[in-house]
Each structure stands twice: as structure tokens, then as C-alpha cells.
Design a protein around this nucleic acid. Structure first.
Lengths: 218, 218
DNA sequence: CAGGACTTACTTACTGGTTTGCAAGTTCTT
DNA sequence: AAGAACTTGCAAACCAGTAAGTAAGTCCTG
């Protein structure tokens, strides 16, 4: 789906003879993307170099540029690539909407604590993305908007409240914030935080808080 | 307090005694640190250069190095500097311990939404800090440990629970995580998040969740 | 099915730029 | 007059991106 666009666009195919990328290309691109994941995770986008990435897949930095055109486009391709991978995995399990999504988020927190590499890359790039004119800014802004929407709907579902209720939207923001913030704390000290337990606790607390009626008695 | 250490250490004068800096020096150092705050906030530590910082205070990058010895030491001085400033401000208001600290955190969230610059610097550096061997790693790890301790105590106080209770510690982690995560979302889209309201909601929800007894009735 | 036409997937080599840090000299302050 | 607070100038590294060349692949035509 998101393939055609991310190719560097064939030089200038006047009367094109052969212009489909070779079979090896897809594999190679994936290798580069994987290497970029690690490098950007370990050193950040600004500080990680094309050389680092190239070394990891055994070619020159110019070779990497051949595939992605520029460092910035490589980053964008990387973000889409991971997003696709996540979505694929998500649909593999089951596509949870509504209240069950909240349980799924708890599971996600647990799974994340088994793959520090990906979590680190995500955290590092997210942090960098709030710098001025960072190429990943729009990606993350859009991602949060979408996530907030999905989770707002789930919270509304679980609490019998309206999706327009500011408290419901707020709870959705809180859930996302908790998960992201926990990842940072966890990366800095893995023994200090039990991500699954804390996400679970927070979601339960928020849902209960928004389902107040029962406590009018006392 | 944290002054002696952060000076570049006398060039190499055998047994370095405390050589007093000129009066102007303290002011200049503060100017440099302020400039570094903005530059690192706008471009990140890895991507922000000494040149950028020097331009801002009207001198050459070598002048900056004269004061701080290296870029890394400048960053460390910056972190201590801001920490001191925060503590000073905090003590100016009042030093809140125990349950009232939780209310104070809500106020802090509100105040932060009036100073995006500082929030951005904090968020960017925090994100970068989880990269391998980043100079700010220890600082943030220590900061979280301390924060977690303070807030754990506050939550224990507010809920009549033990400080050793994993749920109490978890709630403390969650509060910190929420605040940090919200800042990121807010920086990416200031209209999408009301930091004060969401922090307030989350803290109330967590405190109520840990003060369960009343709901056995229903 | 053979071979030219053309493209892809690289490499090597280079450019122009930026970076941190150091050394040595100059001016300011006390 | 001595040391602090700079500047100028420089070195060594790195970095993204471009250019040009080459081998190998793909596709069309006859």
C-alpha cells in the first residue's frame, strides 16, 4: 500500500523499458529499515548517521541513499514501516474496538516490556519529534490524534458516557500519556517499573472515576 | 553548592586551588545556560551546537568552552542549574510534602502550560537521555527515583496505605508518567490537551482507586 | 530465444559543510 | 602585573549528498 510513494521515483523514465524494482530490493530495503531502527534507537535520529546504518547491512552510505533518497525520507519510511508492522500484528491477533481495546492496551504494555529495542526507538524519536521542524513531528501528532480518538471511544464505551465529554477525552489522553511516560521511566531503570501492572491500575482507576454514580450513597 | 564542580577546572596549574572568577563571570555563565536551554530545547542536545549557543549570547563558541570546558559539561551544568532554579521556586512558594504535594502537582501542570519553552527542553532532553551512554541518563534516572519516592509518600499519605505497597508505588509512577506523557502530547498539539484538568482527573482517579473500602456496598 | 535497450543496485571518490576542542594571543579587570 | 575572559585560527573528524562508473538484472523486439 504505502510502497509506491516511498520509492525515490525512477530518475526520468521517458519511454520506460524496465522500471520495476528488482526482487532483491524489497528485502534489502527491509534490512536497511531494521538497521535504521536500531541505530536511531541507540543514537537518535540527529546523532545516528547513514554510515552507521550502512555498516550494519554491509554497504556504503551512498547505497542507503540510493534506496531512500535522503536521510529524512528514510526516517519517514521507517515510521510508516513500523506502523504497518504494528497494524499487521494487531489485525493478526484481532482488531479490538470499544471497551476490549482497554484490555488490549494492558497486554500491549506487557509485550512492550519484552522488546526494549523497539520501545527505545519509539521513545527516542518521539522525544526528538518535538524539536522545531523535526521530520517526525507530523507523524507523531497524527498518531496521537488517532490514538486519542480510538481510546476516547473505548472509554466512552466502558463508562457509558459520551465521546464528546471532556473528561472522557481527558481520560484517553491520560491513558496514552501513562503508557508513554512509563516507557521512559522503564528504559532508564527496568526494575523500577512494572509497566503492565501500572497501566492496568491506571485504566481501572480512570474507568471507575468516570463511572461515579454508585458512590452517591456514601 | 553545585558550583565548584561545574567549573572547567583551572587549565592545568599543578595543584589547582580555588581561583576566583571575576564578577561578570557568574552573570555570563547564566546567560550561556539560558541560551543553551533554548537551543537544546529547539534543536536537541545532539543537534544543537555550541556555535548556536554562542551566537545567542554574542560570543564565539570557544568562549563558551572557556566557561564550561566541554559541551557535555555544559549540559550537566544546565541540568543542575534548572534543578536548582526549580527547587528555589518551589521553596519560595512552600515546601509541600505528604498529601498536599498532589495538589501542588496539579498546579505545576497548569504553570507548565504557560511556559512551553522549558517544557520543550525538558521533554527533548528526557527523550534523548535514553539513548546509549547519553550524558543526561544518570541525571534523569536519579530524578525519577527521587520523584517516585516523594510522590509514593504523598500517595501513601492520601490513601492511608503503606509506602511499601506496590500499588502505591505504581500510582506514583503513573502520576509522573502522566505528567511527562501529557507534555509530549501538548507540545505536539497545544489545543488537544488540557494538562491541568487531565493531571487532576488522573490523580483523583488513582487516589480513589487506592481508597477502595467504600465500594463494597454496591 | 538472442541481443540490444534500458534500469536497478550498488561503489568509489569527492564536495562543501559543520562539528568539537585546543593553542596561543589579546584585552579587560582587579 | 597577573590572571580571567575572551578572540582568532586551526586541526581532525564526521556528515549528508552528488556524480560518475560498473555489474547485473529486466524487458522488448525481431
Amino acid at each position: 500500500m504505502s510502497d509506491e510513494q516511498t520509492w525515490p521515483a525512477p530518475p526520468a523514465s521517458g519511454a520506460g523499458r524496465a522500471q520495476r524494482p528488482q526482487k532483491r530490493s524489497g528485502r534489502r530495503r527491509a534490512e536497511i529499515l531494521d538497521a535504521a531502527m536500531t541505530v536511531f534507537g541507540e543514537r537518535g535520529y540527529a546523532n545516528g548517521s547513514l554510515q552507521d546504518i550502512a555498516d550494519r547491512v554491509g554497504m556504503t552510505h551512498a547505497g542507503v541513499l540510493h534506496h531512500f533518497g535522503s536521510k529524512e525520507q528514510l526516517l519517514i519510511a521507517l515510521l510508516e514501516y513500523r506502523d504497518d508492522a504494528d497494524v499487521a500484528e494487531l489485525e493478526g491477533h484481532h482488531a479490538p474496538r470499544g471497551a476490549p481495546l482497554l484490555e488490549h492496551l494492558v497486554d500491549t504494555a506487557e509485550e512492550n516490556s519484552k522488546r526494549p529495542g523497539i520501545v527505545q526507538t519509539y521513545t527516542v524519536l518521539l522525544g526528538e519529534s518535538v524539536t522545531d521542524k523535526h521530520p517526525a513531528r507530523n507523524f507523531f501528532a497524527g498518531r496521537f490524534a488517532g490514538l486519542r480518538d480510538m481510546i476516547t471511544s473505548a472509554v466512552a464505551d466502558a463508562t457509558d458516557r459520551s465521546m464528546d465529554d471532556p473528561e472522557v477525552i481527558g481520560a484517553a489522553s491520560a491513558v496514552i500519556a501513562t503508557m508513554d511516560g512509563l516507557q521512559t521511566q522503564w528504559l532508564l531503570d527496568k526494575d523500577a517499573v512494572d509497566m503492565r501492572a501500572v497501566v492496568d491500575l491506571t485504566i481501572r482507576a480512570l474507568v471507575r472515576e468516570l463511572t461515579k454514580p454508585a458512590d452517591v450513597i456514601a
